[in-house]
Design a protein around this nucleic acid. Structure first.
Length: 603
DNA sequence: AAAAAAG
């Protein structure tokens, strides 16, 4: 690998820093479209050049065989002669990316680092690599480790403990984990670490000199919503700091031209929503031929949203390397049959990781359920809001129309409210989220677009104005508060129209030691059957805490029988006083080694 | 059923 990239790099010898010609100007008389870009590169030339003796006099100047162009934003390092050469530190940029790096109280991601050891994890598959317990180098790349520290991540979450060695051991991963389990780091850390070690892929000379520059990302991350893609991209910016890897994000709803120009500036880690990626693939703007790492985030949600054909086109219908030529990581909250099929087709001999439902037992969140008829909801809402004592309040409704209507109503009542839903333009959505995050608007009315995956700090109250049809969605929604070990309040309006969630709701409230109002029990008796009951997709009534399991364990799969009772799960770890911790035993593939989830879970 | 996502 390293030898190849050496050869590629040595093809182009471009003189020293002062006479450097960006790759996109070589062999052509084209001028940069934007003189600002050119000059800003020059300004930074000396900055980049200081790294190692002589700057980059004997390499092609760009980022090795990477997809990058001549202009590299501040903070982007390079790959020279088979070696990773990070840029020097840049205080201004660090402040931008990480906030106050010196401030120990600064928390960038809403994670309570002390509590998550109690989250139970099951790992299964052939030869599950031993999980790590700390962020260390090795196995992590040193630069990445430094960035992780800058971002104030002090300890790996359960997902990360497993995913780091799994990727390092060249294995595929199917992880059933919710938002808040440190998923993003779960794939960014190992993928970036490996990328920092191995460097960029060689890209075809023809592609470099073609009339239209083509991006050849090394890693591709697919996410269901634009906001989630943006969020992943923002994280990626932190962890790629100073490295040769340049992250890029593409999604629909915003100008494709500017996204294409951004791709021209370098695209090593691509975060994308499926629609826009397909668009850019059709335009020939992106090639997947050099993809080493493929990540599908919230895969179940992407299938729910009907993305399967688009995802299959991306993975199977273009020039993406086959299952054995890439590493694939899939994340999904649930593991229904269609995801199992996807896993079977996209993954090879994967490790199956099931992370316990974090947060359903969280006592950080006070949950209240009020019986409110539809026509009384507005006034009930006003009551709640008048009792509110500052902080941000997130209000969930079921329809886009209701989101607009309710927002108008609240504004009429002199509340600082804004709305986020799929019928708003992308810039409206971004502005809404922005003003909510900064507190300019302290009420955000949202549809399902904001239910999962979005990390908004400081939400003190989540109101389910309309309850979702699915209790899992409820859990996700209330999880927007009570983050980072803070306390939060969750209020739900319920009436006879919500019968289908009554049972599940009772279960969740009881698990979290919350008061179960008597009308809920009454309703539950009324609809003794016909409801979807609890949660967890698999019908593992004796262990519903995981709702997900490795289906390969059933029947006579390659390792089904070898596990000794692989088909029958032990009793619920939630109620039982099991001994041992998730990690302490070190037996990563032992079904019985999980401690009690006992209320210390985090979101 | 609604929402999301490519226009």
């Amino acid at each position: 690998m390293a030898d190849l990239s050496n050869q590629v790099e040595n093809l182009n010898i471009d003189g020293n820093a002062s006479s450097y010609v960006p790759p996109h100007l070589r062999n052509s008389s084209r001028r940069p479209r934007n003189d600002g870009e050119g000059s800003s590169f020059n300004n930074k030339g000396s900055f980049f050049g200081r790294g190692r003796g002589g700057g980059f006099s004997s390499n092609r100047g760009g980022r090795g065989g990477g997809s990058g162009g001549g202009f590299r934003p501040a903070g982007t390092g390079r790959w020279i002669n088979g070696k990773h050469v990070p840029t020097e530190r840049n205080e201004k940029l660090e402040l931008q990316l990480f906030g106050a790096t010196g401030d120990p109280n600064f928390q960038s991601s809403g994670i309570n680092f002390d509590n998550y050891d109690d989250i139970p994890v099951e790992a299964s598959g052939e030869n599950v690599p031993e999980p790590v317990t700390e962020f260390t180098s090795p196995p992590l790349d040193e630069l990445l480790l430094e960035n992780i520290k800058f971002a104030h991540f002090v300890k790996p979450t359960p997902v990360q403990k497993y995913s780091i060695p799994i990727v390092a051991n060249k294995r595929d991963l199917m992880a059933c984990a919710q938002t808040g389990s440190g998923k993003t780091g779960g794939f960014l850390f190992p993928v970036l670490s490996e990328s920092f070690f191995t460097g960029p892929s060689e890209i075809p000379e023809a592609a470099r000199s073609s009339y239209m520059r083509k991006a050849f990302p090394t890693a591709v991350v697919l996410a269901p919503t634009r906001e989630l893609a943006t969020q992943i991209f923002d994280e990626a910016k932190k962890f790629t700091y100073r490295s040769w890897v340049r992250p890029t994000v593409v999604y629909g709803g915003s100008d494709v031209g500017s996204q294409m120009r951004d791709l021209d500036r370098g695209c090593d880690l691509l975060v994308a929503t499926p629609g826009r990626l397909n668009d850019l693939l059709e335009r020939g703007k992106i090639s997947l031929a050099k993809v080493k790492y493929l990540v599908l985030d919230e895969a179940d949600r992407m299938l729910d949203m009907g993305f399967e054909p688009q995802i299959r086109n991306i993975v199977e219908g273009c020039d993406m390397p086959g299952v054995d030529q890439r590493q694939t990581l899939m994340f999904s909250a649930t593991f229904p049959v269609d995801i199992q099929h996807l896993a079977r087709d996209f993954l090879s001999d994967y490790i199956f990781l099931s992370v316990g439902r974090v947060g359903s037992t969280s006592e950080n969140i006070t949950q209240r359920v009020l019986y409110v008829e539809d026509e009384d909801k507005k006034s009930a809402l006003l009551d709640l809001l008048s009792a509110s004592s500052g902080g941000l309040t997130l209000i969930f409704v079921e329809t886009k129309r209701m989101a607009d209507q309710l927002t108008d109503f609240l504004i009429m009542q002199n509340f600082r409210a804004t709305a986020i839903h799929g019928d708003r333009t992308q810039s409206e959505r971004e502005r809404a989220l922005g003003s909510f995050k900064t507190g300019k608007a302290d009420l955000l009315v949202a549809t399902a677009v904001a239910a999962r995956g979005l990390d908004i700090p400081n939400v003190t109250h989540v109101i389910n104005y309309d309850l979702p049809g699915d209790v899992d969605d409820y859990v996700h929604r209330i999880g927007r508060t009570g983050r980072a070990g803070n306390t939060g309040l969750a209020t739900a309006f319920l009436n006879r129209g919500n019968k289908n969630v009554v049972k599940g709701l009772i279960e969740i409230l009881s698990e979290a030691n919350q008061e179960v109002p008597s009308f809920l029990n009454d309703l539950s008796r009324e609809s003794a059957f016909g409801s979807r009951g609890g949660r967890g997709g698999g019908g593992f009534s004796n262990n519903r805490s995981f709702g997900t399991r490795d289906y390969r364990k059933q029947g006579t799969g390659s390792f089904g029988a070898s596990r000794g009772g692989g088909g029958s799960l032990g009793g619920s770890f939630r109620g039982g006083g099991n001994s041992g911790s998730s990690w302490g035993g070190g037996r990563s593939s032992n079904w019985d080694s999980f401690g009690s989830a006992g209320g210390n879970s985090w979101w």
